[in-house]
Write a protein that binds this DNA or RNA. Sequence first.
DNA 1: CACATTAATATGTGCATGCATATAATCTTT
DNA 2: AAAGATTATATGCATGCACATATTAATGTG
Lengths: 233, 233
Amino acid sequence: MSLVETNSWTGIREELLRRIHEREWQPGEQIPHEADLAEEFGCARTTVNRALRDLAESGLVIRKRRAGTRVALNPPQKATLTIPVIREEVEALGRSYRHSLVFRELRPLPPMLHGAFQVALSDNVLFLKTVHFADDRPFAYEERHINLDAAPEARDMAFDTISANEWLVHNAPYSHGDLSLFAVNATDELAAVLDTVAGGALFALERITWTGDLPITHVRLVYAPGYRLRSDI
Amino acid sequence: MSLVETNSWTGIREELLRRIHEREWQPGEQIPHEADLAEEFGCARTTVNRALRDLAESGLVIRKRRAGTRVALNPPQKATLTIPVIREEVEALGRSYRHSLVFRELRPLPPMLHGAFQVALSDNVLFLKTVHFADDRPFAYEERHINLDAAPEARDMAFDTISANEWLVHNAPYSHGDLSLFAVNATDELAAVLDTVAGGALFALERITWTGDLPITHVRLVYAPGYRLRSDI
DNA sequence: CACATTAATATGTGCATGCATATAATCTTT
DNA sequence: AAAGATTATATGCATGCACATATTAATGTG
């Protein structure tokens, strides 16, 4: 019998969470169905449904029609990362942001990206190298390819006042993308722009974004030494 | 006037998405309120609410009571990462998994973790070093502290057949945690266990998990060279 | 007995309604 | 005119109900 008296869906979720965490309901075990829980908590089935839906979303329970709801065997090792716009990230640290475009060229899509973009592309792609600064110290180095088929106006943009990153966010929103995180050793070039020593381990990410099946941009970001990407789970 | 005839909340979400992607509704712009949309789509406000709530969750719109709903200025750079149990990750690659416990000791909590764990802890903490293999090649190196107050049974576990990682997942589920991703240079010790060269850039992560405010475990994972953590966005 | 058909059931979703709550806008009061 | 109280309004949430849908279990049929 239940001691809770909350009839809010969050309250019910907390109580269900408690039972799972304290192992009253073991992993893999089937839990009472919505109607029974609704009766126990003295609320509508809709409210229980809301709570269970939320738990299912975060991966803690597995729900199947007719089969019922059971506690997940392998609780989620999911983490929602927020990859911030660099300017915002820097400013959130209380430091002043600026960026500098160090290279800009129209060029054919490099063969290395043919596979990643997965479509035949027009010859010209805008290639940019940018350094992002926090308080005048290098914060991250960015290499970016922009598909001019997807964002033709980019051809005439200087990207000196507004960064390509932000411009694209506002002018060529993507529907989906692909992200990968990894580590690289600082090459001489990287060491020079990031004001560090060659060989140092640097945190890096690559992201490709599409709108529909039209690729928009490929970006590779390499952060200055010591950078950590954090997240609550 | 609307051409859509779906009255399912997903259908409405798709139509709203379309308007955002095709910039009918500009970033920052306020969109019609729930009641109006409900009328337009010929459905109940609840249904529009469901669709909008979903869009808000994924960060595409910002909702405030009384102020209404507007298209997010900085669309989400959110990514849901799945940090897999290493065995599953290796097996998903079609390779055979094994692990080897190379060090095990009861010791006081190292000062470095006092701050992270944020509570006074009993003297003894179980410290483990584990190497994870894929097809007999080192895949990742793990250093872990387990709070024996949170998981007392761990004291008598050998962690040779089942890894601490998996054991904890099933026996000391956490309620929340903290994850950070970064890059490290391979030290001599790391290079030796991961069968690589010293100095190489390695992808690493640290995770601390709690149940309530009781810390369970701290783990630091360093992956073999070339590792990438991927995610769809 | 194997296989197709049907029924039962748990979750999923939609609707109408009412009230709760945060907050922008407006109306006091000093 | 500034500060504080009030009101209006958009979203947030709970409810009771009905029906949809997926899936298991039971049943029928050759």
